[in-house]
Design a protein around this nucleic acid. Sequence first.
RNA 1: CGCGGGGAAGUGUACCGGUUGCACGCUUGGCUCAUAACCAAGAGGUAGUGGGUUCAAUUCCCGCCCCCGCAACCA
Length: 476
Amino acid sequence: MAKKAYLTTTLPYVNAAPHIGFALELVQADAIARDLRAQGHEVFFNTGTDEHGTKIYENARAEGKEPQAYVNENTAHFLRLVESLGADLQAGRFIRTTDEDHMAAAQEFWRRCDAAGDIYKAKYATKYCVGCELEKTDSELEGGKCPIHPNLKIEEREEENYFFRFSKYQQPLLELYERYPDFVVPAHRQTEIRNFVADGLKDFSISRLKEKMPWGVPVPGDGSHVMYVWFDALVNYVSTLGWPADEKKFSEFWGTKEEPKAIQLAGKDNLRQQSAMWQAMLMSAGLPPSRHILIHGFITSGGEKMSKSRGNVIDPFEVVEKYGVDALRYWLLREMPTFEDGDFTWEGFKEAYNANLANGLGNLAARVMKLAEDNLSEPIPEFEPTLHVIHGFEIKKAMDVLWVRIQKLDKKINDEEPFKLVKTDVEKGKALIAELVSELASIVRSLAPFLPTTSEKMSTAIQANKKPETLFPRIA
RNA sequence: CGCGGGGAAGUGUACCGGUUGCACGCUUGGCUCAUAACCAAGAGGUAGUGGGUUCAAUUCCCGCCCCCGCAACCA
């Protein structure tokens, strides 16, 4: 029986168009999933969309739409992104937090936390701007005033909310980090979260009054509240596996308390939710923790945060349309540091594309296969089996190794001049060319987790002993 | 206030205390199988800043400046 593995992205909130940052997370997850498959694992790949909450409710109303219709439209864009990036959903799921089974699972999850004594009602103070007719968070206020209505006083309002006993899990969380020093990757993120937890935890609110915001999962046993959006959203990581109904599937992929297996990806802004809050929720519900939380950085654009007002937003679809999926995948996986921030500019993208895809990989494939096509009478016998190439989730480093091999192969051709050798010593020349092709084949195999489409094309060319169509035309 | 990360050739990055390495870009030379590609050589950095420890610091310690994330309800 194949070993089972589980991998998930966070679920993007569908109140805006898909962001290139989510493309990064998806592609990283997909590369790791493919690498795990190359190791013989059966991988459950999860991604999807987060569809409840205030922002969505308001946006839908602003557009005069029913919330469900609104999220249906927006989710379609995310689904299209997943498909156009070549993320491999076979034996996985694109989950939506409005899916029936997920909502039922969220309610069951709530019941278990409640049964564990971790949910209680308390007063919750909110800050309300009469001008906006909205509740405001501290980070939305400037000097205690609403930046849009600085003349109006912020009103303090109180309401009853359900709270989750986060504070109870301080010690268990610290033990979890102790037990798995590589729980959060990279290590400095684990340091960060450990310090945060060690500083003390405050219980957090997990519901909203339904009369104010009905767009959420109903709280079990209390018709006047809905779950606060991310309590419901986090549960997707287990509901996607059919939890609570399918115990077997759940424990096979998610793992057990003795052997947790789930690998989660998230951006650095999500460290706390994934590696502390969600883990505490799992403990409360009596479920095994995750095994790894992989934290990636942010993509800036021209050195600045992407934002509509700055007009520097990079649209992942545009990159794919212009240069192809693998060009974008390449940039995200190798030009972007795996765990740190990276900067996208079109000039930088083009430079990297020309240097490494057109001149590097593409040109090498062309020169080797031209030699093969002209001089070998048949394809090389067999490919060597694929070895998995990503170690410690260091995607960029794994790719760097491949590009060193590309460089070496180019050098070998220059040094040993097979194009001359075939003219002076046919047999030796052919043997050398066959050697070059098999090294290319080996590189191609290792490339599959990162650039699956290109790997496929090159592999076809090698098996046919034909020079492939231009893989990556140079960008002028 | 606090927690975490980072400041190095034009740009992006690696490293253990002991002549700063790599990639892209640039200059020159070589080759012609290849996508004006490939290979070689070269130019280019007082490693944010001020102290300290040391025979010796980019690498360790302290102060300061600047950038990023978190700062608890903002997916």
